[in-house]
């Protein structure tokens, strides 16, 4: 009786934990996907209404839609003094150059080899494509970005959260664990290698509260994910 009771409580606790976890994964996945949309294109009125609902923009935002779109462009689309690079390669990848062979003409010009940072299309890109393909991730409609764009990396993280939630719903525990593991490794190997640098720039260079708050929220993201995905 007692054993049955304990088992019942355990099952009930497990069920409660599972329910909570599903809910939290859905919430986190939704929030990350929302942040991904905010960073994927200039905001439209619908997105701003949602941003207002979650406290990212103040009242009266309806009159400032164009301003937000201009600010998005200034920060993320428009190469220039205020531009914040939105691709992982620029932050993390190293382009290695082999030393050149001795110059046969004998004029002594030879390149010693070296490294270069800060470029698009680094090794992150093909690696990410591989992850996306393996995890059957399809970018959202309208995402015409390089694979290492912040918006796509966040969307992929959201995809993994939601897929884990889905696996838990159908009680596919192994599959849920695999998604959890994938997210952990994805954060470790990609997203969190540059998220802090990127977010810091966003939080400190934005004129509007919207992107300052987006930057701040992104800075907190690893901690909040750790709470539910301890690795």
């Amino acid at each position: 009786m007692l054993r049955e009771g304990v088992q019942g409580v355990t099952r009930s606790l497990e069920a409660t934990n599972r329910e909570e976890r599903i809910q939290e994964l859905q919430r986190s996945g939704g929030e990350i996907r929302f942040l991904s949309r905010l960073l994927g294109a200039p905001p439209d009125a619908a997105l701003l209404a949602d941003a207002h609902a979650v406290g990212l923009v103040e009242d009266g935002w309806e009159a400032r839609v164009e301003q937000y779109r201009v600010e998005y462009t200034r920060l993320f689309s428009c190469p220039g003094p205020n531009f914040i690079p939105v691709n992982q390669s620029v932050y993390t990848d190293i382009l290695k150059m082999e030393p050149s062979a001795p110059d046969p003409s004998g004029c002594g010009m030879a390149f010693p080899g070296g490294e270069l940072r800060g470029y698009l299309g680094g090794t992150s890109c093909p690696a990410l494509v591989r992850w996306y393909t393996e995890a059957a991730f399809t970018a959202y409609d309208g995402a015409r970005q390089m694979p290492d764009h912040i918006s796509l990396e966040l969307d992929f993280a959201a995809h993994l959260c939601l897929a884990e939630a889905h696996a838990l719903v159908i009680e596919a525990q192994d599959e849920a664990a695999a998604y959890r593991d994938l997210l952990f490794k994805f954060r470790q190997n990609f997203l969190e290698l540059w998220l802090a640098s990127f977010s810091q720039c966003v939080a400190s260079n934005s004129v509007s509260s919207l992107y300052r708050r987006v930057g701040a929220r992104l800075l907190e993201l690893p901690t909040s994910l750790d709470r539910y995905n301890p690795g």
């Binding site: 859905q26 919430r27 599959e175």
Partner: peptide, 21 residues
């Protein structure tokens, strides 16, 4: 906030369901 995030998660009333696992 939760309602908004669930909408983006594909759980909201107006959103499409998640693709089958």
């Amino acid at each position: 906030s939760r309602k908004v995030f669930l909408k983006y998660a594909g759980m909201g009333a107006a959103a499409a369901a998640l693709p089958p696992l």
